[in-house]
């Protein structure tokens, strides 16, 4: 009566609070039963299921989420620094792997250091190590060995947010 991966889907989205991404059998199952799951999460938990062509997650009702802010700061600084080096941001985020060492170098030298220092989870390289673990648990990145990671399609959610900011769609300020 329930879809094949019902338990895995519920655990991943609800208990692990992570992205389901294209390539996972759970993701295809979710998309095939999208109407059911949208109703299911809405009726049972009052949560909105956000499902795009290559990623999905449960949107929390909280609008001031520390993790979300930390991710925005991290990605914002990373994109800025990549552009400064003349790299193709979208292409690399979608298809390339990143060495932690390389990312650390960019973050250490950035002119946005002050912002990083004011952010608890991005303050120094040991805090950032925990942060990377957290990103992997939330499936925003996939670890490829000990030294390298790659972004999952989930990162596009945050890039869309940035686009919205540029177009003035996103709220300017909150107190």
């Amino acid at each position: 009566m329930y879809p094949e991966y019902h338990r895995e889907i519920t655990e991943a989205l609800l208990m692990d609070a992570r992205f389901l991404v294209e390539g996972e059998p759970e993701f295809s199952c979710l998309r095939e039963n999208l109407d059911f799951y949208q109703q299911f999460f809405e009726a049972s938990f009052g949560l909105t299921l956000l499902c795009q062509s290559d990623y999905a997650f449960l949107q929390s009702a909280r609008d001031n989420d520390t993790l979300s802010r930390d991710i925005c700061i991290f990605l914002g600084v990373l994109c800025y620094e990549m552009d400064r080096e003349g790299r193709n941001i979208m292409e690399e985020l979608s298809f390339s792997t990143f060495a932690y060492e390389d990312v650390e170098r960019l973050l250490e030298l950035t002119s946005f250091r002050e912002i990083l220092e004011a952010t608890k989870s991005l303050r120094d390289s040991s805090s950032r190590r925990n942060f990377y673990h957290l990103l992997a648990r939330r499936r925003l990145i996939d670890k490829v060995g000990d030294e390298v990671f790659r972004f999952t399609p989930g990162h596009k959610y945050f890039l869309e947010f940035a686009r919205g900011v540029a177009k003035g769609r996103e709220g300017e300020e909150e107190e």
């Binding site: 989205l13 609070a17 992570r18 997650f57 449960l58 949107q59 929390s60 009702a61 909280r62 609008d63 001031n64 989420d65 993790l67 979300s68 802010r69 991710i71 925005c72 939330r138 959610y157 945050f158 947010f161 900011v165 996103e170 709220g171 300017e172 300020e173 909150e174 107190e175």
Partner: peptide, 9 residues
């Protein structure tokens, strides 16, 4: 101070 996208918890 900027708003952030609502993520998952």
């Amino acid at each position: 101070r900027h708003s952030v996208p609502s993520f998952t918890t």
